[in-house]
Nucleic acid binder design. Structure first.
Lengths: 309, 309
DNA sequence: AATCGACATAAGAAATCCTTATTGCAACAC
DNA sequence: GTGTTGCAATAAGGATTTCTTATGTCGATT
């Protein structure tokens, strides 16, 4: 026979009341019921917990020790219940973010994530879309931030923001590319000058798509590993690339030689979304997370426009 | 409805097995029984703990948080049960000791008390017999070390050792007191030279008794507060006093001018006993405590004899 | 000696927990 | 498509636990 929380709480009532009858009253049961539970507890631990005197009672040494332990245990239980009541039973949030979004969006969003008690412990996984989706399905991730894609019916997505692509390169190349056109359009770019990210990065695929190209047509397929590297290269005049607006504020500050030009309407863009399993919406955390991320995205868009592009 | 340990342990089984059927098997119940307890738990916390997928299941964020809390709580419970099984549910031991015993016996006994896991936490109260007995009755003390006295039937005593009285004073006074007698006896002492402890100290009362005196006959009733002070005084040649053998090793080393002389048989003495409430013998701690104290007392007697008195 | 207070004991009622049997649902097979 | 399989939810009845009221016991009090 194992001990129960009921026994422990009755025992604490007894320790407080220092009488069986009084303790029973406190916990709203009859005196024999309390006596029986105390006896069960003594039997389970195989130790006498109270000295029953004709007048009143004392706890034994073992009883006193149990008292302190029981108080701690029951405090943990009620802390648990309290946390659940105030919807603060929030364990780690496992969030996946694609690499072309993570370094720009997260630094902006983190302070607000911390402020919300959404995340006593936030763990970020930065990986490409395929890996993220696999982990989302397997339960290793709770939500992922990716660029528009088709979801199965077992997933649920919320749009965060629209991320427009800008043309990036050295001032000389940009001017050359847009020379003599009334409007700058992706399809008119010279594929030979285009630098894109490694295969598997959705940003590269999307860029190819808006240009109506496929990867085989690229001459400069050097498969850069990160957007930051890519910006460094084009800043040096190596070629042209697409820079998502979300990265503009950071990269234009970090790369001196880089120039940016907006495309004509309709501007090419990707839609950044937050995705979860349909079964996983516990307590509205998803909506709050989406809100904070969308806000951070909007702030980055504004920063880009203020930077004059 | 409140949560139970049973629910928590079933939940942990579920978290481990990652399937209802498997978890049920682990805890040796049927699958519906486990499902019901999990549902009760979710209802009690008012939060979804598991995502039920057609294939397998995941814990929700809240479920993961509960998992860590539940593990801690159940670990505390099993630690508690384990402690009880190995009889190590030993809280504080509240021990009372009279002032004419405490400073000599305890330093000797402490190392052995610590070695035994009798006392994860030992608290000593040093007070006169009356106070100690009151606290013993009220449950504030678990046991007391006092000198022979009559106990009610609600108390139980074990003899620790016989503590003989020696005559103490300056060499000159001692010699004078025993001059011309074939045997040194308490009754032959000059009451005018006798220095005793404050009223209430049983040692003083016992000394008076063996001399066949009462306190009113004393000229030098200066009511010394401690045996140590008293020894200092008689060492200075102020008078004579009774020194219990237990104090001999310490005081004869501490007080340069002090001389000691044994009384003739039958030597006057007090019996030092350990007392508890009859109802308080939990797990044999009393016997172990008595053994350790008796041993320390015996060691002090030997030390006294080796010191040559 | 009688009474009172406080806990233990006893017996039956209520609530809880568990069992087996069955249903429901989605994935998989053919 | 239809049937099958795997797994969990539901349902109904039974076993256990926990409660209640009623009564017994024992020491303390008068």
């Amino acid at each position: 026979m194992s001990i129960t929380l009921r026994q422990l709480s009755y025992f604490l009532a007894l320790a407080d009341a220092r009488s069986f009858g009084g303790a029973a009253e406190k916990v709203h049961i009859s005196q024999p019921a309390l006596s029986m539970q105390i006896r069960e507890l003594e039997a389970a631990l195989n130790v006498a917990l109270v000295e029953r005197l004709p007048r009143g009672l004392h706890l034994t040494r073992e009883g006193r020790e149990l008292e302190t332990r029981a108080r701690r245990i029951l405090a943990e239980i009620s802390e648990l219940e309290a946390a659940a009541r105030r919807k603060a039973l929030t364990g780690r949030l496992n969030l996946g973010v694609i690499p072309t979004v993570a370094p720009y969006l997260l630094p902006r969003a983190l302070p607000n994530l911390r402020a919300d008690d959404l995340t006593r412990d936030l763990r970020i996984r930065e990986a490409r879309t395929d890996d993220l989706m696999a982990d989302l399905h397997s339960g290793r991730l709770d939500a992922v931030v990716v660029a528009d894609l088709a979801y199965g019916s077992d997933l649920s997505a919320t749009s965060l923001f629209e991320d427009r692509f800008l043309l990036a390169g050295s001032e000389r190349r940009i001017s050359a590319a847009s020379a003599g056109m009334e409007a700058l359009r992706p399809a008119t770019l010279d594929p030979d000058q285009l630098l894109l990210l490694d295969e598997g990065h959705c940003l590269a695929d999307q860029a190819l798509e808006v240009c109506g190209l496929d990867r085989k047509r690229l001459r400069l397929d050097l498969g850069a590993a990160s957007l930051s590297t890519l910006c460094g290269l084009v800043g040096q005049g190596v070629g042209l690339t697409f820079l998502p607006e979300i990265a503009v504020a950071t990269e234009s500050a970090a790369v001196p030689g880089i120039a940016l030009r907006r495309f004509a309407e309709p501007e090419p863009s990707r839609r950044i979304v937050l995705v979860r399993r349909v079964t996983s919406d516990g307590e509205g955390w998803f909506a709050r997370l989406a809100e904070i991320l969308a806000e951070a995205g909007a702030a980055l868009m504004n920063a880009a426009r203020r930077a004059g592009v």
